[in-house]
Amino acid sequence: MSRTWPTAFATTAALTVFAAGLLIGGNTLEGWGLAARWTARVGFPIFLAAYLASSLVKLAPAPWSRALLRDRRWWGLGFAASHTVHFVALVVATSLNPEPRSIASLIPGGIAYVFILLMALTSSKAAMRALGRNWKRLHSTGIHVIWLIYTLAYAKRIPVPETRLIGMTMTALALTALALRLAARRKRPVSAFA
């Protein structure tokens, strides 16, 4: 199997829920809203795979965690692909909504998309060599910014009864992921191919 399968999987999953949202929605606005929501939710575990890859191989060195780390680039590119599908759904849903969103509410997501684009464009060995230490700074900052925006987006759903369950579940997953990364920092590094 090609090592690029995580990217194909992520893209297929995003396109599937995108289509499902459009089909299930009771009207055009609801369909695009569901497509935007569901593609964001599908992207989250894909993001977590990339976010946790190096930490999991330190905490639980095993064939599965080494494979996850080995394929981290493809999980990251899969997240970028799935979030491109999300971006299309979100833009259309926002343009159809009679209650326009404020510019301030669009800034966090805009920042995340800048990092997603920069990280996708620099996900190669050539980019790593060209950027040197700045490559690690870019990717480390970017992945934490995306984590923070996801976490805040889900945490703000907790006070609303209709979205409390999804908000609590996803926020708990995000905080658990951060706890795993912090725990992994205390352990000595383990080679991905050891």
Rank of each mutant, 00 (worst) to 15 (best):
F115V: 05
V190P: 09
I24E: 09
A177D: 03
L152G: 12
A177Q: 03
R41K: 06
S95I: 04
K125Y: 12
T11F: 09
L69I: 04
L178M: 14
L182T: 14
L69P: 00
V190F: 10
L148Y: 12
F193H: 12
I143Y: 07
R72T: 08
S105Q: 09
G43Q: 07
R157M: 15
A112I: 03
A80E: 04
T122K: 00
V145A: 05
A127T: 11
P6G: 09
P45V: 07
V160S: 10
A130H: 08
Y51R: 01
T122N: 12
I46G: 02
T4W: 07
W64N: 01
L22F: 00
L15G: 01
S191N: 13
L173F: 15
F79T: 00
R66G: 06
T163N: 12
A53Y: 00
T11K: 04
A130P: 03
L131V: 09
L165M: 08
A194S: 15
V114C: 10
A10K: 03
A40K: 06
R164N: 11
L175D: 00
I107T: 11
V57M: 12
W38E: 10
S124A: 03
T84V: 09
T171V: 11
R70I: 08
E30T: 09
L117I: 15
R137E: 07
W32K: 01
A10P: 05
P98A: 02
L56D: 03
I24R: 15
R186A: 14
S140K: 09
F79L: 12
H139F: 02
P161A: 15
S191D: 15
R188V: 10
H139A: 04
T7I: 02
L23V: 08
H83V: 05
L121A: 13
N97E: 02
L34G: 02
I149R: 05
A20W: 05
A174P: 00
P189D: 13
M1G: 12
K156W: 10
T122V: 07
L96A: 01
G142A: 11
F87Q: 13
R137T: 15
L59R: 11
A53Q: 00
I103H: 11
G21N: 06
T94I: 08
V190Q: 12
R188Y: 03
G142K: 08
G26H: 03
L48N: 07
A177V: 10
L182N: 10
A13R: 02
M1D: 07
G25Q: 08
R41M: 10
M128Y: 06
A10I: 04
R186L: 14
V85Y: 02
F79I: 06
V57I: 11
K136T: 13
R181W: 03
A130C: 04
W5R: 13
R133M: 12
